[in-house]
Write a protein that binds this DNA or RNA. Sequence first.
DNA 1: CGCTATTCTCATGTCTATATGATGTTTATG
DNA 2: CATAAACATCATATAGACATGAGAATAGCG
Lengths: 135, 135
Amino acid sequence: MLLSQTSRYALRAAAYLGECFAEDRSVPVGEIADAVAVPRNYLSKTLHLLARQGILVSERGPKGGFRLARAPRTIRLVEVVAPLEPAFTERSCLLGRPSCSDADPCAAHDRWRHLTEEVSDFLQSTSLADLSRAE
Amino acid sequence: MLLSQTSRYALRAAAYLGECFAEDRSVPVGEIADAVAVPRNYLSKTLHLLARQGILVSERGPKGGFRLARAPRTIRLVEVVAPLEPAFTERSCLLGRPSCSDADPCAAHDRWRHLTEEVSDFLQSTSLADLSRAE
DNA sequence: CGCTATTCTCATGTCTATATGATGTTTATG
DNA sequence: CATAAACATCATATAGACATGAGAATAGCG
């Protein structure tokens, strides 16, 4: 699983907002929640957090809702995940040894470090636009 | 971080037991907890769980403690982690789409799947012996 | 047999993730 | 300016992760 439920909810919602981006409208939470099958009120709080981070823009009142603050192509997955799990991108030693990186020749540690870097790279190099199906 | 605190505790303890394996003795929880800097009673419960899984053997009474049930070289990391986080090795779609794998040509999904497979492979192919420093 | 080291098990507590539902607040629109 | 749509916020609930401490069960040993 790797990512928390909340992060996966947020990615699904963000991907949906990416698909709506061309329509240039605010999308109500209810519509997003229905579309991506996520609890409505819980999603509301998560999206509000992302809005405070500047990833999304929220508008109140009728015709209000959420939209991406920038084009889907320019929003990296890490921007969505990082506010929701700050510790996720920390790349610490598998065994919690304090100074493992340089002095430690252990092959397993090197492989683990490589893995965590690959995960970071994926979140860093993938944009919301990459999550939309090409249909 | 990827792995839970409990899993990292267990891996550290198991690695320590791997280093003690040649001494052919049961290692008390207190010694393990001190050696790897993990809360004693909490570790006790975790190790007991691994003993029930057959990874460790526990012995009560004086001269009791825990030891590996098999040689460190033959115990894969996944055996230690799997009982502690059953969902970790599940490789589901990043967006939670039900049938994503075959029909979905999305590049991000393929990359994500590849990443999760690499993590699984690491846990599957690395043994406790690989965690010991070569000193 | 009794002492003691040790695991085993239970009770309890805190914190966070994951929610649900009610209520407050803002704002477009007629 | 009233209404209703929608976000914002608060109270509450549940489950699990993480942790502590006490006591019960076991077993070696004198």
